[in-house]
């Protein structure tokens, strides 16, 4: 009887240690949906680029502006969905959405992400278009890797996959959109599904 108590003690300790450091309410479903948005976005982008075949896309052209708006739309939809579904999951698990662990998660996710974002904008400004796809993938991968310490382990593997994809993309600079499709689309759907089946149901 006494032994059972000690065993429960150890179980409690382990549970509290992970719950106090990791935000576990991250929704897997939001990963799947973010992947789908990315695929739709990429399909629209592809038709927009194909329509401009004969023209060179420059920073000033409307096509470029539309592409930026499209990318921004995909980002807003993805983040919005992730927030909405995570709040829902947190409520179900009785976890506060805005606690010490979720704050740490967001801060650590955003540091590499914002760095990569600024870096990409500076590259665009200076005309290095070819490196945008690999740079965004690599920095997004590092953001996931950094954030994974404070949430579900699967995010770590998503990050590593994105980094590897990004490095490969450097060698194939004309195919940026396809690497984005694999990285932001397919990878999110695959890892999102894994997380959904492991934790959400």
């Amino acid at each position: 009887m006494k032994n059972q108590n000690y065993l429960n003690d150890l179980k409690d300790i382990k549970e509290l240690m992970s719950r106090s450091t990791q935000f576990v309410s991250l929704s897997g479903l939001s990963g799947i949906l973010a992947g789908l948005y990315a695929l739709i976005g990429a399909a629209v982008a592809k038709t927009m680029i194909d329509a401009e075949r004969q023209e060179y896309i420059t920073l000033e052209s409307t096509t470029f502006r539309n592409l930026i708006i499209l990318a921004f739309l995909v980002l807003v939809c993805s983040v919005g969905t992730a927030y909405f579904l995570t709040v829902k999951k947190a409520k179900k698990a009785n976890e506060h959405i805005w606690n010490a662990t979720s704050k740490r998660l967001i801060i650590n996710f955003c540091i590499p992400l914002v760095t990569g974002g600024i870096f990409s904008i500076l590259l665009l400004k200076n005309g290095y278009f070819g490196l945008i796809a690999p740079i965004t993938l690599i920095f997004y991968g590092m953001s996931c890797l950094n954030a994974s310490k404070y949430t579900l382990r699967d995010v770590r593997y998503l990050g590593i996959t994105q980094i590897i994809l990004g490095l490969i993309a450097v060698e194939y600079s004309g195919y940026g959109l396809y690497f984005w499709v694999i990285g932001f689309g397919i990878c999110h759907i695959v890892y999102g599904s894994v997380m959904y089946y492991k934790y959400d149901r």
Binding site: D9, D12, I13, L16, M17, S20, T21
Partner: peptide, 9 residues
């Protein structure tokens, strides 16, 4: 036990 567990990590 809980307080200590949290403050350990």
């Amino acid at each position: 036990l809980g307080i200590m567990s949290i403050l350990m990590v």
